[in-house]
Design a protein around this nucleic acid. Structure first.
Ligand SMILES: [Mn+2]
Ligand SMILES: [Mn+2]
Ligand SMILES: [Zn+2]
Ligand SMILES: [Zn+2]
Lengths: 138, 138
DNA sequence: AAATATTTTGCAACAGTGTTGCATTTAATA
DNA sequence: TATTAAATGCAACACTGTTGCAAAATATTT
């Protein structure tokens, strides 16, 4: 409970119930969440706009990062100590076509890639789609 | 001009002016296009819905593929002989944060990646953001 | 504990995205 | 040219994402 306040304080954010609940949702559900997911989970309690603004704030402060998807953006917790200044990720995202869930594979890193002359890379987003272990088993 | 009809016929699609114009737009502009880009380019001529349906059809037939983006989907021509059955890509997409354009780097391939036990990959989408050669030069 | 300054929230309104149903028009074929 | 099947335009809808502004909540100072 105080964990949430700590995290928010650590990123120079005021503690509000909406922020606690959104952060809590990211921690409990372990997969990436869309705005729609969050609105479904706690939409009765807060206005849509507030949830959008919470996501935007969390992005800026380095609490969550975007997860690219072929049918809309999702968001997931930043595991490392991301901050407003440094916001770096090089892990892979996996979306299961069976159960629909998208997860961060924190330990699978995007390898170095040789780009054509002149391209200066700054950030990477790799989405692999397929079947996740739970769904393969069935 | 007949090139367009050929391509459409080759993918078992009737020739319509909208399809010709959309296909033409993809060929002329070389970067990835969003629905909004297309509507801007030829929105006076066709209904929004028709453009959406054209994109959907082109996707299904393997004429274009989705390009994931952090601020909305884009689409780009399939260079290889993609078809309704086989629709495989392993090249990289590069988005320039300066000029905003996203391009297929057809010759830069996504390397093999070791996934944790149980994950079965089927398709890959890698977006690299940074600065493109044109914008680096300035 | 109360007053103050600053942020955050809810609401309204809006622009954009993406989909569906249905009547009309168009393209391919006979 | 007539027939048939597919594509289009229009209306309507649900969802995504943003902005302005007044009201409420938080953090800070007295
Ligand atoms: Mn991630
Ligand atoms: Mn591409
Ligand atoms: Zn799954
Ligand atoms: Zn550029």
């Amino acid at each position: 409970m105080d964990q949430l306040r700590e995290t928010l304080k650590g990123h120079h954010l005021r503690t509000t119930t909406c922020r606690e609940d959104v952060l809590s949702a990211f921690i409990n559900k372990k997969n990436a969440l869309s705005h729609g997911d969050l609105e479904g989970a706690l939409g009765e309690s807060y206005d849509r706009v507030t949830i959008y603004r919470t996501l935007k704030t969390f992005l800026e402060k380095g609490i969550i990062h975007k997860v690219l998807d072929d049918e809309g953006l999702r968001y997931a917790l930043c595991s490392q100590q991301c901050s407003e200044e440094k916001h770096q990720h090089d892990h892979i995202h996996f979306k299961c076509n069976a159960c629909g869930k998208t997860n961060c594979l924190e330990n699978s890193h995007i390898p170095n890639i040789a780009l054509p002359q002149g391209y200066q890379p700054a950030s990477f987003n790799l989405l692999i789609q397929g079947t996740c272990p739970e769904c393969v088993a069935e």
